[in-house]
């Protein structure tokens, strides 16, 4: 009985720590914090660094189903994790693996599929 209470207590404490650490943040929050600055609120590639800064190479339009359907999920995952340079695209796309977990990157890949309303290239 005491052991059960202790276990439950540990689980509740762990859940409380997880919430305090921001684990409840959604993939939309992650996209807003890191991606919107260049890809824009609507995901069209028209973020403020594009519209006010003027990027030498435009940020990708995640809503463009024609272009996005040419990419495999692995290519998108690699672009997010390793940066544009790793997939022969612009170095202006940073590598995010130093900041985002594998799960967060996987969730972002899935979010780009929602934005383009398209499926991955085979």
């Amino acid at each position: 009985m005491n052991r059960l209470a202790l276990s439950l207590g540990c689980i509740i404490a762990a859940a409380a720590v997880a919430m305090a650490d921001g684990q409840t943040e959604t993939v939309e929050d992650t996209y807003r914090l890191y991606c919107v600055q260049c890809h824009g609120t609507a995901g069209t590639g028209q973020g403020i660094n594009q519209t006010a800064g003027g990027l030498a190479v435009s940020a990708r339009d995640h809503t463009n189903s024609v272009e996005m359907s040419k990419l495999t999920d692995e290519e998108i995952r690699r672009a997010i994790a390793k940066g544009g340079d790793a997939v022969q695209k612009s170095e202006l796309m940073p590598p995010w693996e130093g900041v985002l977990s594998a799960k967060e990157i996987g969730d972002l890949v899935a979010l780009t599929r929602k934005l383009c309303k398209c499926v991955a290239a085979k």
């Binding site: 260049c38 006010a52 800064g53 202006l92 796309m93």
Partner: peptide, 24 residues
């Protein structure tokens, strides 16, 4: 700063009297 890494995408700098770079 401007080619190999993405710094200029978000930060403005002045190079030879010309300002360049992003704004986030």
């Amino acid at each position: 700063f401007t080619k190999q890494y993405p710094c200029v995408g978000c930060h403005r700098v002045r190079v030879r009297d010309k300002e360049t770079g992003g704004v986030s």
